[in-house]
Amino acid sequence: MAGWALCMALVLAALPEAVGESRYEKFLRQHVDYPRTSVFAAHRYCETMLARRQVTAPGRPCKPSNTFVHAPAGELVAACTQTPDTAGLHSTPTPMSLTACRLRGGDTRPPCTYRARQLHHHVRVACLDGLPVHLAGTHMPPREV
């Protein structure tokens, strides 16, 4: 009986989308990579991370874009305390290090190939109950005059 329980625990741990993943947990899985994961082939960061975090998977269409934020989750939670814009979105008060992944080519079927860009931008999030649940985009810090 203990073996069966261990097997089920391993299956559920391997499937982050399994029953019980909150919207905040899904947000963390899809968008927070702090500290930044070192991958064997740096030019394959996006493909590696999207597969590892089960954002892309065989049988699913490729996600057109995804952003990984390389800052502690608490800094994104703190964004939810900022005054929302007219669309109801909250921005981080300071720019953050991130990797923006964009699908290469027009084919949306796996294998998915991405172009990665390293940026230092503010992050816009939608919040629910004081927690970020959707990464709505990023924007450059204002230019100093």
Rank of each mutant, 00 (worst) to 15 (best):
K63Q: 08
P84S: 07
G137N: 05
S38N: 09
A79D: 00
A5G: 13
R102N: 14
L12H: 03
Q118A: 15
C46F: 04
S97V: 08
F27T: 01
T92I: 11
G20A: 09
A78M: 10
Y24F: 13
R36H: 06
G137L: 07
P16D: 01
T86G: 12
N66E: 01
C7I: 14
T108P: 06
R23C: 09
G105H: 09
G130W: 01
C127A: 06
T92K: 09
A126H: 01
E17D: 08
R52I: 07
V77H: 01
E144Y: 04
V145M: 15
L98R: 00
V125D: 02
T86W: 07
R53P: 02
H120F: 04
R44A: 15
E47V: 06
A41E: 15
R23T: 12
V19T: 13
G106H: 08
A126G: 02
L135W: 06
V55E: 00
V69P: 04
G137T: 06
Q82R: 13
P132D: 07
A79E: 03
C46Q: 03
C101I: 05
K26L: 12
L50E: 00
R44Y: 06
C127Q: 02
A9L: 11
A57W: 04
Y45I: 06
V145S: 15
A14E: 03
R104A: 08
W4V: 10
V19F: 11
C112L: 07
P95E: 00
D107E: 12
A5C: 14
R23D: 12
H121L: 15
R60N: 13
P16W: 02
R117Y: 05
L50I: 07
L128G: 12
T67Y: 07
R124L: 13
M140A: 14
A13D: 06
R36V: 06
H134S: 05
D129M: 08
C46H: 03
V39F: 02
E21W: 05
G88K: 00
L131K: 11
G3F: 08
P110R: 04
L89C: 03
H70E: 02
L98M: 09
A18P: 03
F40S: 12
C7S: 12
S65P: 03
V145F: 13
R117Q: 11
L12Y: 08
P58Y: 05
G59Q: 05
K26S: 13
H134T: 04
N66H: 01
R53H: 07
T83C: 11
V55P: 03
P141T: 05
C46V: 01
Y24R: 14
V69M: 10
H90T: 01
G59A: 06
S65Q: 10
L103D: 02
L89M: 04
C112H: 03
L12G: 05
A51L: 15
T92V: 15
V133R: 02
D85H: 03
A71R: 08
A5Q: 13
P141W: 00
T108Q: 09
T108R: 15
T94M: 07
L50M: 12
M49N: 03
T113E: 13
A51W: 07
